[in-house]
Simulated scan of single mutants.
Amino acid sequence: MRKTVTYYLALVSPWAYLGSQRFTDLVTRYDAQVQLRPIDLSEVFPKSGGLPLAKRAPARQAYRLQELERWREECGLPLTLHPRHFPSPEQTAAHMVIAADMAGANALGLAHAMLRAVWAEERNIDDEDTLRAIADEQGLDGTNLLAQAKEPEIAERRSAYTAQALEDGVFGVPSYLIDGELFWGQDRLDFVEKRLRG
């Protein structure tokens, strides 16, 4: 039976970026269906005991940088530890990904491109011209997606995804839900693969 993975992410998460291509490769290899769910961490953290980066203790912030360096090397991916446009509002970017997903376009590829833009290319995903260009580079109609991203239905859908994430026990990203079992973090992709393998 074909597996379904509910994939919760935020488009400014370095951890989602580090796991993004590997996750895409896994779901392709195992022919899994993906329910792509860009969520609002500013809603998730207060309700799940998390803190935004700036409010974390200095020791936690320092350790995060060490871990990013380790995982950057482990994954062999370009990653800027202090990107020019982080933190950055991601609402419009998330809405574009949702709009692409609703249209049956390659939303997973667009999400990866948004993540790469922040962490490897130092681009501003809070800038509409940049967002339009990123979508166009993925073979999508950036102008159309940007217009759709401003529709109230899209905002409502992201809010619903965020509420569902909390119901599913999500407290951070990336998180992967398979048959009711939650896996948090790109460092759990080995377990995701085992689950997909059955």
Rank of each mutant, 00 (worst) to 15 (best):
I39N: 02
M96I: 12
S42T: 14
Q61Y: 00
L51P: 05
H95W: 10
T80P: 00
A54F: 15
R84Q: 14
G76P: 02
S88M: 10
P78I: 01
S42P: 00
P89L: 14
R60S: 09
E43F: 06
K47D: 11
Q91W: 11
T92S: 04
G50D: 06
R56E: 05
A100E: 10
E43M: 15
T28Y: 03
P46S: 07
L51M: 15
L68S: 00
R84N: 05
Q35T: 12
R72W: 04
E90H: 08
A59V: 07
T80N: 08
R72G: 01
P52F: 10
H85E: 02
P52L: 15
V27F: 02
V27I: 15
A32I: 04
Y30E: 10
Q91V: 14
P78H: 02
H82I: 06
K47N: 10
G104I: 07
V34K: 03
T28F: 03
Y63I: 02
P58G: 06
Q35D: 12
R64N: 02
A103R: 10
L77H: 09
E69W: 01
G76S: 06
V27R: 05
R29N: 13
S42M: 12
F45T: 12
Q91F: 09
W71K: 00
R56W: 08
A59K: 02
W71G: 00
L81M: 08
L53Q: 09
V34P: 04
R64T: 09
L41D: 05
H85V: 07
